[in-house]
């Protein structure tokens, strides 16, 4: 009887908190955060340029998983689509088109790496101290009482197209400007006689 009541209580807790218990969410968040940080460190420290782009995939995918754990599902899938799908592919295109060496390139880091390390460690220490001190007693309530989560595509779409329509349209104009700018930057006026397959207008 007692065990039955106990299991019913845990079942109710699991119902209330969804897939993972709150401490389970925290543990998974910390583990994925460690993986993300490790991949980010490998991105900025590896000597092989293509490996840096591939570690960037791992880091951005880890960030997408963190969005999922924070119940922002739509943002997570947008992150996967835009970052992992297009930005990393663009970066790989850029690496190939600038004739990046495939093997180790010893000059990937500049001479001021120790100054950079000192600056970033100082910034990290300061910001971590401030942030931990500021949010010491702050908790996120990830459990949603009813209905779709706060980050589902329905809620996000409603917020985006009801309250944020004007910035959305302005952003589409900005994307158009970026598209035109990339084409203008990439085309060459000197080689109009070349066949169109050689022109680099398709890089964008």
């Amino acid at each position: 009887m007692n065990a039955l009541a106990h299991s019913a209580a845990t079942h109710a807790a699991a119902d209330h908190h969804g897939f993972l218990s709150p401490s389970g969410v925290e543990i998974v968040f910390v583990l994925v955060g460690l993986v993300t940080l490790g991949a980010a460190l490998a991105t900025v420290t590896t000597k092989q340029l293509v490996h840096a782009a591939l570690w960037l995939v791992v880091a951005l995918g880890g960030v997408a998983v963190e969005y999922l754990l924070l119940t922002a599902e739509f943002i997570a899938w947008v992150q996967v689509l835009i970052y992992v799908g297009s930005v990393v592919v663009l970066i790989l295109f850029g690496l190939m088109l600038t004739r990046a060496p495939i093997g180790r390139s010893p000059d990937a880091d500049s001479g001021n790496r120790w100054a950079a390390l000192a600056v970033s460690v100082a910034a990290a220490a300061t910001l971590v101290t401030v942030v931990v001190d500021a949010f010491r007693a702050t908790w996120i309530d990830l459990a949603d009482p009813a209905g779709p989560g706060s980050g589902s595509s329905e809620v996000t779409g409603t917020a985006l197209f009801r309250h944020w329509v004007l910035p959305f349209e302005a952003l589409s104009v900005l994307l158009l400007a970026a598209l035109v700018g990339a084409i203008v930057l990439s085309r060459r006026d000197g080689d109009r006689d070349l066949p169109p397959a050689r022109t680099r207008a398709g890089e964008r």
Binding site: P22, A40, T43, L70, S120, L127, F135, W139
Partner: peptide, 20 residues
């Protein structure tokens, strides 16, 4: 979830990017 987890992760990721 404690708010310090995502905040600290964001800070550390930002500083890694700063170093890069």
């Amino acid at each position: 979830m404690h708010l310090a987890y995502p905040a600290v992760l964001a800070v550390l990721l930002f500083c890694v990017g700063l170093y890069g």
